[in-house]
Design a protein around this nucleic acid. Structure first.
Lengths: 237, 237
DNA sequence: CGACACGTTGATAACATTCAAGCTAAGTGG
DNA sequence: CCACTTAGCTTGAATGTTATCAACGTGTCG
């Protein structure tokens, strides 16, 4: 006999199960989890939530990529974060009990698992380990924010753009001869909103990076030479 | 008969008792709180913890002002936050279970209440409400970081410096004729580290603010004209 | 006094913004 | 298929802002 479906953890097949904030939910509270659990597909450009929306739950990116953006009254947009599979989003407004201060929009075809607000509440109150894991996500968020503040304050835009592209290359690139190559999931405007500069400046910095041989850029097709870290002897590796 | 001292909440006389993360601690766990509780005075320039130190507990500023700074390998310093009475500091490294990523140093004669690491652990495990309050502080920290990222990305340094000075004026200023006046608790270098610019630039931006009549600046003595918000009729108020 | 920390100023170079123009690829409708 | 439009990206020229480096003032402290 199969156990009742409410005892099967909905994240158990997920690649990020171990790290899931819902991992600690045991059989006693499983029905709260399964009851409020849903999965949803997003196409490129679709929004999961908008700035000013009521919080409807805690979201976990299961596939794809989301941009977390903040729009200001003056029409400026800041790209605060890129959310990859395994990342939990919307938890700030969930924990604050208020409106979303940012929007979440898919940059690629994506999938999101949601635990509805009410159910999340029950789970958090039932097992403190869930809250502990949510708090750990908060700490990660604090760290990421600090790193970004420090980075923005101390590094040149060229350095910062190089870092961003390298990180994106890690996530999206694949080997192509002597290069790592990727299809950039961000527009020039997105890169600008990530750096806090204008798109024209992104274009010019990118040009400099091209000239210095750090990247080969053609639209959103980006290649990065694979650098021989220390010993040039391992050419064949 | 006086109740045993362990049942008196050590924060009960504090002006920030209601907001204290330890407020929820009840009689059952009070000895864990009183046992690990200590108060300490700091003179200007003294450090509460240094970057790289082990976390020794959760700290709450009770009087004075602390600067939370991050030093980078390249010798750069970023002033991440000013901690005022009622602010809890050091909780990021407490929750992360790792080393301090920042230093906390008194900018003014200050007082700090500490709950030792081990005791904090017991309290957090005994009453989930304590963790809930710590998590709320995390959320505040996330919000503050985001606001700063957005501010840095979208506002001019002149605007940002004006905002910083206005905020400081709220905390440190007192009325002096048609002005609010304060003794600036920060050096030019601190202001620069707060904005992510060079001290020379702070000097020049300050000069512009003087010329535009926004502030009267002489060293650390700052005056700000009290603006007639809407109706110029209430001159006498 | 001399040493030092802190702050200001000037000259110059590096870098970013603004505004305008033009380019390219993708999509639309004839 | 072509002409047309549009969004996204690049480029140029003029302007504005910041960094850098060096000099100099001022007040404090031994």
């Amino acid at each position: 006999m199969r156990p009742p479906s409410s005892s099967v953890h909905p994240c158990s097949q997920c690649a990020f199960y171990d790290q899931s904030v819902w991992h600690p939910v045991g059989n006693g509270a499983m029905s709260f989890l399964t009851g409020g659990f849903s999965r949803r597909e997003f196409s490129e450009g679709q929004a999961l939530y908008q700035q000013g929306d009521e919080n409807r739950g805690v979201f976990c990116v299961s596939r794809g990529l989301f941009a977390i953006r903040a729009h200001s009254e003056t029409g400026n947009t800041t790209l605060l974060k890129l959310a990859y599979p395994g990342d939990v989003i919307g938890f700030r407004s969930y924990l604050a009990g208020g409106l979303h201060k940012t929007e979440a929009r898919a940059l690629l075809p994506s999938r999101v698992c949601t635990v509805a607000h009410r159910n999340a509440n029950r789970l958090v109150h039932t097992d403190a380990k869930v809250l502990t894991r949510l708090t750990a996500r908060c700490v990660d968020e604090i760290d990421a924010g600090r790193d970004r503040i420090i980075d923005a304050a101390t590094e040149s835009n060229q350095t910062r753009l190089t870092r961003i592209l390298s990180k994106l290359m890690q996530a999206h690139g694949s080997r192509d001869g002597a290069y790592l190559r990727m299809q950039l999931p961000l527009s020039r405007t997105d890169l600008a909103d990530l750096l806090g500069i204008k798109p024209e400046t992104v274009s010019r910095v990118l040009k400099r990076l091209k000239q210095e041989g750090e990247f080969i850029v053609s639209g959103r097709d980006i290649r990065m030479p694979i650098v021989q870290t220390s010993s040039p002897a391992i050419k064949g590796a």
